[in-house]
Computed example of a mutant assay.
Amino acid sequence: MLTKKQLDLLAFIHKRVQRDGVPPSFDEMKDALDLRSKSGIHRLITALEERGFIRRLAHRARAIEVVKLPDSMGGTGFAPRVIDGDLPDIPPPANALPVSTIEATELPVMGKIAAGVPIEAISQRSHGVTVPNGMLAGNGAHYALEVKGDSMIEAGINDGDVVVILETSVADDGDIVVALVEDQEATLKRFKRKGNAIALEAANPLYETRVFPSDQVKVQGRLVGLIRSY
Rank of each mutant, 00 (worst) to 15 (best):
A61E: 14
A61N: 12
A61Y: 08
A61M: 11
R62I: 03
A63D: 14
A63P: 02
I64Y: 01
E65M: 14
E65G: 01
E65Y: 02
V66E: 00
V66I: 15
V67N: 00
V67E: 01
L69C: 04
L69I: 02
L69T: 00
P70M: 05
P70N: 02
P70F: 05
P70W: 04
D71A: 14
D71W: 07
D71V: 11
D71P: 05
D71M: 07
S72C: 13
S72I: 15
S72H: 03
S72N: 09
M73C: 06
M73A: 05
M73F: 04
M73D: 01
M73I: 07
G74W: 04
G75H: 09
G75P: 00
G75R: 10
T76P: 01
T76L: 08
G77N: 07
G77W: 11
G77V: 02
G77K: 10
F78H: 11
F78E: 03
A79D: 12
A79K: 15
A79W: 02
A79T: 15
A79R: 15
A79Q: 14
A79S: 10
P80G: 05
P80S: 13
R81M: 13
R81K: 14
R81E: 09
V82A: 08
V82I: 15
I83R: 02
I83S: 06
I83W: 10
I83P: 00
I83G: 01
D84L: 14
D84W: 12
D84R: 08
D84Q: 09
D84H: 14
G85R: 06
D86C: 00
D86I: 03
D86M: 06
D86H: 12
D86F: 05
D86T: 07
L87I: 08
L87C: 01
L87M: 09
L87N: 06
P88Q: 09
I90H: 04
I90Y: 06
I90G: 02
P91A: 13
P91W: 06
P91E: 12
P91V: 03
P91Q: 03
P92H: 09
P93N: 07
P93I: 00
P93Y: 05
A94Y: 10
A94T: 11
A94S: 14
N95C: 04
A96S: 10
A96P: 04
L97Q: 15
L97I: 12
L97K: 15
P98K: 06
P98A: 06
V99Y: 03
V99K: 05
V99E: 14
S100M: 14
T101M: 12
T101G: 03
T101N: 07
